[in-house]
Protein backbone atom coordinates (compact mmCIF):
# COMPACT_ATOMS: atom_id res chain seq x y z
CA UNK A 1 0.00 0.00 0.00
CA UNK A 2 2.77 2.43 0.98
CA UNK A 3 4.70 1.58 -2.17
CA UNK A 4 1.57 2.21 -4.21
CA UNK A 5 1.03 5.52 -2.47
CA UNK A 6 4.61 6.63 -3.07
CA UNK A 7 4.39 5.66 -6.73
CA UNK A 8 1.14 7.57 -7.17
CA UNK A 9 2.62 10.65 -5.54
CA UNK A 10 5.66 10.42 -7.82
CA UNK A 11 3.36 10.14 -10.83
CA UNK A 12 1.82 13.49 -9.90
CA UNK A 13 5.13 15.31 -10.49
CA UNK A 14 5.26 14.90 -14.30
CA UNK A 15 1.51 15.54 -14.38
CA UNK A 16 2.04 18.81 -12.47
CA UNK A 17 4.89 19.79 -14.77
CA UNK A 18 2.82 19.01 -17.84
CA UNK A 19 -0.11 20.97 -16.47
CA UNK A 20 2.12 23.93 -15.71
CA UNK A 21 3.52 23.99 -19.26
CA UNK A 22 0.11 23.57 -20.87
CA UNK A 23 -1.62 26.20 -18.74
CA UNK A 24 1.24 28.68 -19.20
CA UNK A 25 1.25 28.25 -22.96
CA UNK A 26 -2.54 28.22 -23.29
CA UNK A 27 -3.03 31.51 -21.48
CA UNK A 28 -0.29 33.12 -23.56
CA UNK A 29 -1.62 31.81 -26.85
CA UNK A 30 -5.11 33.19 -26.12
CA UNK A 31 -5.76 36.58 -27.74
CA UNK A 32 -5.82 39.72 -25.64
CA UNK A 33 -3.44 41.70 -23.57
CA UNK A 34 -2.61 41.08 -19.91
CA UNK A 35 -2.37 44.81 -19.29
CA UNK A 36 -5.92 45.45 -20.49
CA UNK A 37 -7.25 45.42 -16.96
CA UNK A 38 -4.86 47.95 -15.54
CA UNK A 39 -4.47 50.42 -18.36
CA UNK A 40 -7.17 53.00 -19.00
CA UNK A 41 -8.87 52.32 -22.33
CA UNK A 42 -7.40 55.47 -23.84
CA UNK A 43 -3.80 54.53 -23.05
CA UNK A 44 -1.67 54.64 -26.17
CA UNK A 45 0.20 51.72 -27.69
CA UNK A 46 3.41 53.42 -26.57
CA UNK A 47 2.37 53.50 -22.91
CA UNK A 48 1.20 49.91 -23.30
CA UNK A 49 4.69 48.92 -24.44
CA UNK A 50 6.29 50.75 -21.53
CA UNK A 51 4.03 49.01 -19.03
CA UNK A 52 4.65 45.69 -20.77
CA UNK A 53 8.36 46.12 -20.11
CA UNK A 54 7.70 47.13 -16.49
CA UNK A 55 5.74 43.91 -15.93
CA UNK A 56 8.27 41.76 -17.80
CA UNK A 57 5.90 40.72 -20.59
CA UNK A 58 8.40 41.83 -23.21
CA UNK A 59 10.69 38.89 -22.41
CA UNK A 60 10.71 35.67 -24.45
CA UNK A 61 8.06 33.17 -23.37
CA UNK A 62 10.51 30.46 -22.18
CA UNK A 63 12.21 33.05 -19.95
CA UNK A 64 8.87 34.16 -18.56
CA UNK A 65 7.92 30.53 -17.96
CA UNK A 66 11.23 29.77 -16.25
CA UNK A 67 10.88 32.74 -13.90
CA UNK A 68 7.28 31.82 -13.11
CA UNK A 69 8.08 28.14 -12.47
CA UNK A 70 11.00 29.02 -10.22
CA UNK A 71 8.76 31.22 -8.12
CA UNK A 72 5.96 28.63 -8.01
CA UNK A 73 8.41 26.02 -6.75
CA UNK A 74 9.18 28.42 -3.92
CA UNK A 75 5.48 28.77 -3.18
CA UNK A 76 5.18 32.19 -4.79
CA UNK A 77 2.39 32.29 -7.38
CA UNK A 78 3.05 35.93 -8.12
CA UNK A 79 0.75 38.91 -7.99
CA UNK A 80 -2.52 39.42 -9.80
CA UNK A 81 -2.12 42.09 -12.46
CA UNK A 82 -5.70 43.25 -12.13
CA UNK A 83 -5.86 43.56 -8.35
CA UNK A 84 -2.24 43.77 -7.26
CA UNK A 85 -2.99 41.17 -4.59
CA UNK A 86 -0.96 37.96 -4.20
CA UNK A 87 -2.38 35.15 -6.34
CA UNK A 88 -2.11 32.77 -3.40
CA UNK A 89 -4.32 35.03 -1.27
CA UNK A 90 -6.87 35.42 -4.05
CA UNK A 91 -6.92 31.68 -4.68
CA UNK A 92 -7.04 30.76 -1.01
CA UNK A 93 -10.10 32.90 -0.42
CA UNK A 94 -11.86 31.65 -3.55
CA UNK A 95 -11.03 27.99 -2.88
CA UNK A 96 -12.48 28.30 0.62
CA UNK A 97 -15.73 29.68 -0.78
CA UNK A 98 -15.93 27.07 -3.54
CA UNK A 99 -15.13 24.32 -1.04
CA UNK A 100 -18.21 25.24 1.00
CA UNK A 101 -20.37 25.26 -2.10
CA UNK A 102 -18.86 22.14 -3.69
CA UNK A 103 -19.04 19.98 -0.58
CA UNK A 104 -22.67 20.86 0.07
CA UNK A 105 -23.55 20.41 -3.61
CA UNK A 106 -21.72 17.05 -3.71
CA UNK A 107 -23.54 15.85 -0.61
CA UNK A 108 -26.90 16.82 -2.06
CA UNK A 109 -25.99 15.33 -5.42
CA UNK A 110 -24.63 12.11 -3.94
CA UNK A 111 -27.51 11.53 -1.56
CA UNK A 112 -30.21 12.25 -4.11
CA UNK A 113 -28.31 10.55 -6.94
CA UNK A 114 -27.74 7.41 -4.87
CA UNK A 115 -31.38 7.37 -3.81
CA UNK A 116 -32.71 7.72 -7.34
CA UNK A 117 -30.08 5.30 -8.69
CA UNK A 118 -30.81 2.59 -6.15
CA UNK A 119 -34.53 2.92 -6.52
CA UNK A 120 -34.32 2.90 -10.31
CA UNK A 121 -31.91 -0.04 -10.37
CA UNK A 122 -33.82 -2.02 -7.77
CA UNK A 123 -37.14 -1.56 -9.51
CA UNK A 124 -35.74 -1.73 -13.02
CA UNK A 125 -38.22 -1.23 -15.88
CA UNK A 126 -41.01 -0.30 -13.48
CA UNK A 127 -42.65 3.13 -13.45
CA UNK A 128 -40.48 4.00 -10.43
CA UNK A 129 -37.40 3.35 -12.56
CA UNK A 130 -38.81 5.53 -15.33
CA UNK A 131 -39.53 8.44 -13.00
CA UNK A 132 -36.13 8.20 -11.29
CA UNK A 133 -34.33 7.85 -14.63
CA UNK A 134 -36.25 10.81 -16.01
CA UNK A 135 -35.12 12.94 -13.07
CA UNK A 136 -31.49 11.89 -13.50
CA UNK A 137 -31.57 12.57 -17.25
CA UNK A 138 -33.04 16.00 -16.55
CA UNK A 139 -30.22 16.59 -14.05
CA UNK A 140 -27.54 15.81 -16.63
CA UNK A 141 -29.27 17.57 -19.51
CA UNK A 142 -30.59 20.86 -18.11
CA UNK A 143 -28.12 23.74 -18.51
CA UNK A 144 -27.33 24.53 -14.88
CA UNK A 145 -26.92 28.28 -15.38
CA UNK A 146 -30.45 28.32 -16.82
CA UNK A 147 -31.74 26.33 -13.86
CA UNK A 148 -29.96 28.78 -11.55
CA UNK A 149 -31.70 31.72 -13.16
CA UNK A 150 -35.07 29.98 -12.97
CA UNK A 151 -34.55 29.22 -9.27
CA UNK A 152 -33.60 32.85 -8.67
CA UNK A 153 -36.73 34.07 -10.45
CA UNK A 154 -38.95 31.75 -8.42
CA UNK A 155 -37.38 31.79 -4.96
CA UNK A 156 -35.71 35.21 -4.87
CA UNK A 157 -37.63 37.51 -7.18
CA UNK A 158 -41.17 36.12 -6.97
CA UNK A 159 -41.35 34.52 -3.53
CA UNK A 160 -38.57 36.55 -1.91
CA UNK A 161 -37.64 33.56 0.26
CA UNK A 162 -33.94 33.31 -0.50
CA UNK A 163 -31.26 35.80 -1.53
CA UNK A 164 -30.29 35.87 -5.18
CA UNK A 165 -26.60 36.63 -4.88
CA UNK A 166 -23.56 36.72 -2.66
CA UNK A 167 -22.03 34.50 -0.02
CA UNK A 168 -23.58 36.06 3.05
CA UNK A 169 -25.12 39.27 4.27
CA UNK A 170 -21.70 40.85 4.72
CA UNK A 171 -19.81 38.95 2.05
CA UNK A 172 -17.85 35.74 2.44
CA UNK A 173 -15.29 37.25 4.79
CA UNK A 174 -17.33 36.40 7.87
CA UNK A 175 -18.81 33.06 6.74
CA UNK A 176 -20.64 31.17 9.49
CA UNK A 177 -22.90 28.13 9.46
CA UNK A 178 -25.93 30.11 10.57
CA UNK A 179 -29.22 30.68 8.77
CA UNK A 180 -28.21 34.17 7.57
CA UNK A 181 -25.38 32.58 5.59
CA UNK A 182 -26.85 29.19 4.77
CA UNK A 183 -29.79 30.84 3.00
CA UNK A 184 -27.27 32.34 0.57
CA UNK A 185 -25.90 28.85 -0.06
CA UNK A 186 -29.14 27.02 -0.82
CA UNK A 187 -29.85 28.10 -4.40
CA UNK A 188 -26.29 27.85 -5.78
CA UNK A 189 -25.75 24.51 -4.00
CA UNK A 190 -28.96 23.03 -5.40
CA UNK A 191 -28.09 24.30 -8.88
CA UNK A 192 -24.60 22.90 -8.64
CA UNK A 193 -25.79 19.54 -7.32
CA UNK A 194 -28.00 18.77 -10.30
CA UNK A 195 -25.28 17.44 -12.60
CA UNK A 196 -23.55 15.19 -10.02
CA UNK A 197 -26.99 14.01 -8.94
CA UNK A 198 -27.78 12.91 -12.49
CA UNK A 199 -24.40 11.30 -13.06
CA UNK A 200 -24.38 9.45 -9.72
CA UNK A 201 -27.98 8.30 -10.29
CA UNK A 202 -27.20 6.86 -13.72
CA UNK A 203 -24.03 5.16 -12.46
CA UNK A 204 -25.70 3.68 -9.40
CA UNK A 205 -28.70 2.50 -11.41
CA UNK A 206 -26.44 0.62 -13.82
CA UNK A 207 -24.38 -0.80 -10.95
CA UNK A 208 -27.40 -1.95 -8.97
CA UNK A 209 -28.99 -3.51 -12.03
CA UNK A 210 -25.75 -5.30 -12.82
CA UNK A 211 -25.19 -6.51 -9.26
CA UNK A 212 -28.77 -7.72 -8.94
CA UNK A 213 -28.30 -9.88 -12.01
CA UNK A 214 -25.24 -11.61 -10.58
CA UNK A 215 -25.40 -15.13 -9.23
CA UNK A 216 -24.42 -14.35 -5.68
CA UNK A 217 -27.61 -12.29 -5.32
CA UNK A 218 -29.65 -15.29 -6.38
CA UNK A 219 -27.61 -17.24 -3.87
CA UNK A 220 -28.42 -14.78 -1.14
CA UNK A 221 -32.08 -14.92 -1.94
CA UNK A 222 -31.95 -18.76 -2.10
CA UNK A 223 -30.46 -18.71 1.38
CA UNK A 224 -33.57 -16.85 2.47
CA UNK A 225 -32.16 -13.37 2.84
CA UNK A 226 -34.85 -10.69 2.95
CA UNK A 227 -34.81 -7.66 0.64
CA UNK A 228 -33.14 -5.48 3.29
CA UNK A 229 -30.29 -7.94 3.62
CA UNK A 230 -29.85 -8.21 -0.14
CA UNK A 231 -29.96 -4.43 -0.35
CA UNK A 232 -27.09 -4.18 2.16
CA UNK A 233 -24.95 -6.46 -0.01
CA UNK A 234 -25.83 -4.48 -3.14
CA UNK A 235 -24.87 -1.21 -1.47
CA UNK A 236 -21.56 -2.63 -0.32
CA UNK A 237 -20.75 -3.82 -3.84
CA UNK A 238 -21.81 -0.63 -5.54
CA UNK A 239 -20.15 1.73 -3.07
CA UNK A 240 -16.54 1.75 -4.41
CA UNK A 241 -17.54 2.75 -7.93
CA UNK A 242 -20.15 5.20 -6.69
CA UNK A 243 -17.57 6.77 -4.39
CA UNK A 244 -15.07 7.03 -7.22
CA UNK A 245 -17.66 8.83 -9.33
CA UNK A 246 -18.52 11.11 -6.43
CA UNK A 247 -14.84 11.89 -5.87
CA UNK A 248 -14.43 12.89 -9.50
CA UNK A 249 -17.55 15.02 -9.28
CA UNK A 250 -16.22 16.73 -6.16
CA UNK A 251 -13.05 17.43 -8.12
CA UNK A 252 -15.04 19.02 -10.93
CA UNK A 253 -17.06 21.08 -8.50
CA UNK A 254 -14.00 22.25 -6.58
CA UNK A 255 -12.82 23.72 -9.84
CA UNK A 256 -15.85 25.90 -9.46
CA UNK A 257 -18.47 26.60 -12.03
CA UNK A 258 -17.82 29.83 -13.86
CA UNK A 259 -21.46 30.06 -14.91
CA UNK A 260 -23.12 29.17 -11.61
CA UNK A 261 -20.79 31.29 -9.51
CA UNK A 262 -21.29 34.21 -11.89
CA UNK A 263 -25.07 33.87 -11.86
CA UNK A 264 -25.08 33.83 -8.04
CA UNK A 265 -22.09 36.17 -7.58
CA UNK A 266 -20.55 33.45 -5.41
CA UNK A 267 -16.92 34.50 -4.89
CA UNK A 268 -15.35 31.12 -5.60
CA UNK A 269 -12.79 29.74 -8.00
CA UNK A 270 -15.19 29.71 -10.96
CA UNK A 271 -16.03 33.38 -10.48
CA UNK A 272 -12.32 34.13 -10.04
CA UNK A 273 -11.37 32.19 -13.16
CA UNK A 274 -14.08 33.90 -15.18
CA UNK A 275 -12.83 37.31 -14.14
CA UNK A 276 -9.21 36.34 -14.73
CA UNK A 277 -10.09 35.22 -18.26
CA UNK A 278 -11.97 38.43 -19.08
CA UNK A 279 -9.21 40.58 -17.61
CA UNK A 280 -6.38 38.53 -19.16
CA UNK A 281 -4.92 38.35 -15.69
CA UNK A 282 -2.17 35.90 -16.63
CA UNK A 283 -0.54 35.29 -13.22
CA UNK A 284 -3.93 34.66 -11.64
CA UNK A 285 -5.06 32.45 -14.51
CA UNK A 286 -1.85 30.39 -14.47
CA UNK A 287 -1.89 30.01 -10.70
CA UNK A 288 -5.58 29.14 -10.56
CA UNK A 289 -5.41 26.52 -13.32
CA UNK A 290 -2.33 24.91 -11.80
CA UNK A 291 -3.75 24.75 -8.29
CA UNK A 292 -7.12 23.44 -9.49
CA UNK A 293 -5.44 20.81 -11.63
CA UNK A 294 -3.41 19.71 -8.64
CA UNK A 295 -6.53 19.60 -6.46
CA UNK A 296 -8.03 17.29 -9.05
CA UNK A 297 -4.94 15.07 -9.11
CA UNK A 298 -4.85 14.85 -5.31
CA UNK A 299 -8.56 14.08 -5.16
CA UNK A 300 -8.10 11.26 -7.66
CA UNK A 301 -5.36 9.89 -5.49
CA UNK A 302 -7.54 10.09 -2.39
CA UNK A 303 -10.42 8.39 -4.17
CA UNK A 304 -8.12 5.54 -5.25
CA UNK A 305 -6.94 5.09 -1.69
CA UNK A 306 -10.44 5.18 -0.22
CA UNK A 307 -11.63 2.79 -2.91
CA UNK A 308 -8.92 0.29 -2.10
CA UNK A 309 -9.68 0.57 1.60
CA UNK A 310 -13.41 -0.03 1.12
CA UNK A 311 -13.08 -2.85 -1.36
CA UNK A 312 -10.40 -5.40 -0.49
CA UNK A 313 -10.65 -6.79 -4.02
CA UNK A 314 -9.12 -3.58 -5.33
CA UNK A 315 -5.60 -4.50 -4.37
CA UNK A 316 -2.79 -2.31 -5.55
CA UNK A 317 0.76 -3.47 -5.47
Amino acid sequence: MLKYLAARILYTLPVAFGVSVVCFMLVHIAPGDPLTSILPPDASAQLQQEMRALYGFDRPLPVQYGIWLLKVLQGDFGTSIATGRPVATELGRALGNTFILAVVATLIGFLLGSLFGFVAGYFRDSWIDKVASFISIIGVSVPHYWLGMVLVIIFSVQLNWLPATGAGPGGSGDWAWDWAHIRHLILPAITMSVIPMGIVARTVRALVADILSQEFVSGLRAKGLMDVGVFRHVVKNAAPTALAVMGLQLGYLLGGSILIETVFSWPGTGFLLGQAIFQRDLPLLQGAILVLAMVFVVLNLLVDIVQSLIDPRVQRT
Binding site: I153, S156, V157, A164, T165, G166, T262, V263, S265
Partner: peptide, 12 residues
Amino acid sequence: PETNTRIAALRS
Protein backbone atom coordinates in the same frame (compact mmCIF):
# COMPACT_ATOMS: atom_id res chain seq x y z
CA PRO B 1 -20.71 42.10 -13.55
CA GLU B 2 -23.60 39.94 -14.79
CA THR B 3 -26.64 41.96 -15.88
CA ASN B 4 -29.29 39.40 -14.94
CA THR B 5 -27.69 38.91 -11.53
CA ARG B 6 -27.88 42.65 -10.90
CA ILE B 7 -31.55 42.71 -11.85
CA ALA B 8 -32.31 39.69 -9.64
CA ALA B 9 -30.45 41.32 -6.75
CA LEU B 10 -32.49 44.50 -7.14
CA ARG B 11 -35.80 42.70 -7.45
CA SER B 12 -35.10 40.47 -4.46
